[in-house]
């Protein structure tokens, strides 16, 4: 039931808080308004905090997908600046 097309993706499993969010934020910044980013992150702290931080920035969370390998993919639509 994917009703979206991924425009770009970023892997933040290689960094720790707060650089996880920073790396995601930089990736979002490089996209156009309305485009969709897939963010691969580790379970635990990143999966708990990164979605909330991105939501606080005003972007739209479309989905949080369990990759069943200890990582999640967060699908985000960029909203405004």
């Amino acid at each position: 039931m994917n009703d979206y097309a991924i425009d770009d993706s970023v892997d933040i499993t290689d960094v720790v808080c707060p650089v996880t969010f920073v790396k995601a934020k930089v990736a979002i910044d490089e996209m156009e308004d309305g485009q969709i980013l897939s963010i691969r992150m580790n379970d635990g702290e990143p999966a708990q905090n990164v979605p909330r931080s991105i939501k606080d920035e005003g972007h739209r969370i479309l989905r949080l997908k369990d990759n069943e390998d200890g990582t999640y993919s967060l699908i985000v639509q960029k909203r405004g600046d």
């Binding site: 934020k25 606080d56 920035e57």
Partner: peptide
């Protein structure tokens, strides 16, 4: 473009909504 080191160095700025990547 920021290097990984720069992302880490400036992370507390970039996190701030009023600064961010652009700032």
């Amino acid at each position: 473009a920021f290097s990984d080191d720069q992302l880490e160095r400036y992370s507390r700025h970039i996190i701030l909504k009023e600064i961010g990547v652009r700032g």
